[in-house]
Write a protein that binds this DNA or RNA. Sequence first.
DNA 1: ACGCTAACTGTTTGCGATAACATTGTATCG
DNA 2: CGATACAATGTTATCGCAAACAGTTAGCGT
Lengths: 337, 337
Amino acid sequence: MSSTKFHPVSMQDVARAAGVSAQTVSRVANGSGQVKPETRSVVEAAMDKLGYRPNFAARALKRGRFKAIGVVMFDILATGNILTLEGITRAAKEQGYAVTLTMMEDGGESLAAAVDRMKTLPVDGIIVDLEKMVPDVRTYMPPSDLPLTVITSAKADYMNTIDEDQYGCSRMVVEYFLERGHTNVYFVSGPTNSVASEIRKAGWRDTLAAHGIVAPPPILGDWNADSGYAAGLELAKKDDCTAIYAGNDAMANGIMKALEDSGVRVPDDKSIIGVDNSLQSMVAKLALTSVSMDFSAVGHKAFEMTVDAIEGAKNTTPTHTLIPGAIVERSSVADLR
Amino acid sequence: MSSTKFHPVSMQDVARAAGVSAQTVSRVANGSGQVKPETRSVVEAAMDKLGYRPNFAARALKRGRFKAIGVVMFDILATGNILTLEGITRAAKEQGYAVTLTMMEDGGESLAAAVDRMKTLPVDGIIVDLEKMVPDVRTYMPPSDLPLTVITSAKADYMNTIDEDQYGCSRMVVEYFLERGHTNVYFVSGPTNSVASEIRKAGWRDTLAAHGIVAPPPILGDWNADSGYAAGLELAKKDDCTAIYAGNDAMANGIMKALEDSGVRVPDDKSIIGVDNSLQSMVAKLALTSVSMDFSAVGHKAFEMTVDAIEGAKNTTPTHTLIPGAIVERSSVADLR
DNA sequence: ACGCTAACTGTTTGCGATAACATTGTATCG
DNA sequence: CGATACAATGTTATCGCAAACAGTTAGCGT
């Protein structure tokens, strides 16, 4: 029942108790070197009895590695980010790495500041999840002593980046509609300061163009259901609109409600596809076809890239990796063929 | 463009460059002791030039503190847990602490295992967020060398615990209904293995009893909207039911859909209150009155308790702290008075 | 001018673990 | 049987930092 301030049991203590040298304790603790089985058990018994735990700091100091990576999130509450974090954490656990998390204030802190903060912490590599655009992504020069992976839709010149394939997601959606006989697709976007939304918009417009179709003006939303509702009221009046591509599921949900309130039937009169596949548990009898983005895979991959850089330490050229999404079919799209 | 393996600049290097002793560099780095302003600037210049960063491991080894706390989450994806994590992380940041995150597998790992895992990591204290019941909560004896705070609805004998006030939340809801002239309240519960749900159920039943009302049989749900839908179909047929208390918003949303599909109007025919206040951005024209649980405050408080234990190191008796929720009024409750 | 204090800076030491090297003991072989 | 290899363990030095202590200088009162 002694209440010492913090971990009191060192290798020396164990060594003394077991009647061996500290080095032998070290060998037992790490399973390295040759130790007589008999000696090993004596040491292990002593460890158990004293409740020995290796001192992390001392180990890290000697080894120069922490077996930990830092994650910087700008908005931990945004849809998907938590899944990304989950992917990172799970991958980290598998490889025996710890994850250290910090949040950045929403108000335009720069990437440089984020990395600098992390650099003072016990980490061997850094993953930054950039929901929003920050000023210095493109030109940021990563530190030479600490591998960095950035999750962002923006392109960067000097770093490894990874992201959902936003552009490809739009292509999938548009072609899905066109294959089913729709002749045009309306798009309800997220806020224009969202890089992801802008890229999706480009993918949508380009794919339509590739099929010789002029994209109608996109309707501006803000990711929330209410903005979707407003967009839905507007779209309800357009008879030429049979296919709607909503920037996320929340807006799609709002659109569907507005259509219903306007007496427009889904999918009979208008079809709709959302993005995120996030409403399953929230909405009963969910009818919304949606693009499922694999955030968890992004996290997993981001971790792997970071660890590869830590352990390989090769000076490879910056890569930009894209993780594809997939359409989850429900019943909000009509086949007009 | 030298690519050294890891941080190469030590205090010695700075000291050499600045023509002072390492100790003086240390004093500048920590703002401790007396240093001539002139010397200080020379040292700072040298730090800048060399890109010096204090070595975390060495510092921690010397000080015996990491300035970090560990967070163990059993289900990072559950509603509210992410908010709790956000609360912890924000509070930690304010006090200059880092947060190290690990997840536990869903399959009934014990509290002891969770804590043991964390103990090998660079942390000064531990917070465990226990969504589900684990076998050893009640009797678990926390380590004496590492402060532990557990977020759980279950009671524990030897640890500090903290939770949303689930019981009080039910009392609030029931009395809210009764005050408005309702004479009974139906309850749609979460799964019975959820401690939180069981406590809410008790609060609901007890409060009704305190008003001399016999609680109707609770309807079993599973937190998902579809189970709410099923419950809603059932409740739609009960004429004596004017007030529904749904275990969470997702189920409430399902219930409302079922009532609508059954031609029952909300709030004219039946009133409903949910818990979590989580659907604002998902559902357009949200009508659902809901109990807002302050998960973020729970996280914040959990962090504070942990840090107090770290820094105070007093052997206080275990506490159980409850954070109250609040009813967010929308338009799903009729006033019958 | 003397002693004394305060301001500033340097030296020594050790936090706990482990790589590298040194030492001892034991088995094996020609 | 002496040489040799190798298994088993101990000793030393070191990672980077900072507490404790030890100097050195300047300023001040008498």
